[in-house]
Write a protein that binds this DNA or RNA. Structure first.
Lengths: 213, 213
DNA sequence: GAATACCTACCTACTGGTCGGTAGGGGCAT
DNA sequence: ATGCCCCTACCGACCAGTAGGTAGGTATTC
C-alpha cells in the first residue's frame, strides 16, 4: 500500500488525472470477484480502465501485488463498518439482530466482495491466511467472547460459541456467494430486492429461534 | 460419455489396460477441486496420470468435455446415496437428523467434491445450471414439499421451506468449503476427526433448536 | 533536468489442441 | 503359421493464441 492516496491531484495533463490507481483497484475488485484471480487477465483490467497493460504494471509491480492490494483496499472499507456494527449497544438477541442486519445490508451492497472472499476462502490462498486472516481473527475472537458472556448470563442458549459464529456467518454469506445456484433452484433472481428481504427475514427468524430457544 | 464402460477388458497389451480413463477422471476431480477449471492445466492432469497430454485428449475430446465428464461422474456417485438418505422413514426432526447425518458423512468422505461444487456454485458456470441444476432440483423440490407437510402437521416450526433448505445445506457445506478459512480462525485442522465430530454435533444442535422451537 | 504517467514493441513461458506416427494385440484369409 | 489389416492407446513435435512482465521511448508537468 503506497501513500499517494492524497486527494490533492497529482495534476497531470490527461483528463482522468487523479484517479487511475483507484480506478484500477475498483475495476480489479469487480473482475477478480467475477472471474477469479486466474480467470482475470491484466489486459481485461487495463482495457476496462482505458490504459495499456504496462501502464497498469507501472502502478502495481505484479499481478499478485495488484490482487493483494485489491483485497486489502476492499477490506479496509469492510472492517470498519463491520466493527461499527459490532459495537455492543445492547444485550442478547437484540444485539445479534443488530449485527446481522448491518452485515446483511453490507453484503447486499457489495456482492462482488462476498464472491471474492468466498473464492479466497475456498482457495485458501496466501492472502487469506496472512492478511485476511489477521484482519478477521480479532473480530471473530471478539464475537466468540461476547457470545460466551451472554450464554453465561443466561441470555442466549448455550452452544459452542466459535462454531456458532461460523454457522451464523455461513447462513448469511452462503446465500450471496451461491446466488447462481439459488437462481437455478428457485427460478427467480435471488438478488432482487424482494428476494433479499425474504432471505434476511428468514435468516433472522431461524437464527433467533436457534439462539433463544 | 462413451459406452466403453464394459467391464470386459478391451484386452490390450499394456499392464494398466482397463483403468486409464477412470484414472484420468479421478485425478481430474482432485485437481479441478483443488485449483479450479482455469487453474488446472491438462498437463497437470496428464503428468499425474503418467501419460502425455495428447493421450489424455484421446480419451476426452477437450478440456471442457473432461471437466463436464468429471463433474457428471462424481455426481453419479453423489445423487444416489443422497437419495437413499433422503428416503422418508420417520417424521419430524428425526427424519431431518437422519438426512443431515448421512449428508455430513457423505461430504466428510468427499471434501474435493464439496469444493468443486462450491466453485461451480460461485462461478455459475454452464455445467452447474444445466446438469448439476437438473440433478439437484428434484431433490430440492422434494425436500421443500416434505418440510411443508411436516410444518402443516405441526411437527416442525413454520418457516419458508425453500429458504430453510438453503439455510440447512449452507450450514453443512460452508464448513467444508471454507475449511481453509476455518483453519486460520480456529488454529486447528477443521477436517480432523474430532473437529468434524464437534462440527456435526453443533450443526445438529443448532438446527434442532431452530426446527423444533 | 527530473519526475510522473503513459505508450509501443518485444520477450519468454505456457495454454489447449492438432498432426502424423507407432507399438502391439485381435481377427482373418491364405 | 504367416502375412495382412484394422484397432486402441500412446507418443513427440508442432501450432496459434495468450499470459505476465520488461525495455526503452515520449509527452507533460514541476
Amino acid at each position: 500500500m503506497r501513500e499517494d492516496s492524497l486527494v490533492a491531484p497529482t495534476s497531470r495533463g490527461t483528463i482522468t488525472a487523479e484517479g487511475t490507481r483507484d480506478q484500477i483497484l475498483a475495476v480489479s475488485l469487480r473482475r477478480f470477484a467475477a472471474d477469479g484471480f486466474r480467470g482475470t487477465s491484466l489486459n481485461d483490467i487495463a482495457d476496462e480502465v482505458g490504459i495499456r497493460r504496462p501502464s497498469l504494471l507501472y502502478h502495481f509491480p505484479s499481478k499478485e501485488e495488484l490482487y493483494r492490494a485489491t483485497i486489502l483496499s476492499a477490506l479496509a472499507g469492510w472492517i470498519e463498518p463491520l466493527r461499527d456494527a459490532a459495537t455492543v449497544v445492547t444485550q442478547g438477541w437484540d444485539q445479534i439482530e443488530r449485527v446481522l442486519r448491518s452485515a446483511f445490508r453490507f453484503f447486499e451492497e457489495r456482492p462482488e466482495l462476498v464472491r471474492l472472499a468466498r473464492r479466497e476462502a475456498i482457495d485458501g490462498g496466501p492472502i487469506l491466511t496472512d492478511e485476511l486472516g489477521t484482519a478477521i481473527r480479532p473480530l471473530f475472537a471478539q464475537a466468540t467472547r461476547w457470545l460466551e458472556g451472554e450464554m453465561d448470563a443466561g441470555r442466549l442458549r448455550r452452544y459452542d460459541a466459535a462454531q456458532l459464529v461460523i454457522t451464523s456467518y455461513g447462513a448469511v454469506l452462503s446465500y450471496f456467494s451461491d446466488a447462481a445456484l439459488v437462481t437455478t433452484l428457485l427460478g427467480t433472481d435471488p438478488l432482487a430486492p424482494s428476494a433479499l428481504e425474504t432471505r434476511r427475514d428468514h435468516v433472522l427468524d431461524v437464527l433467533e429461534a436457534a439462539y433463544t430457544a
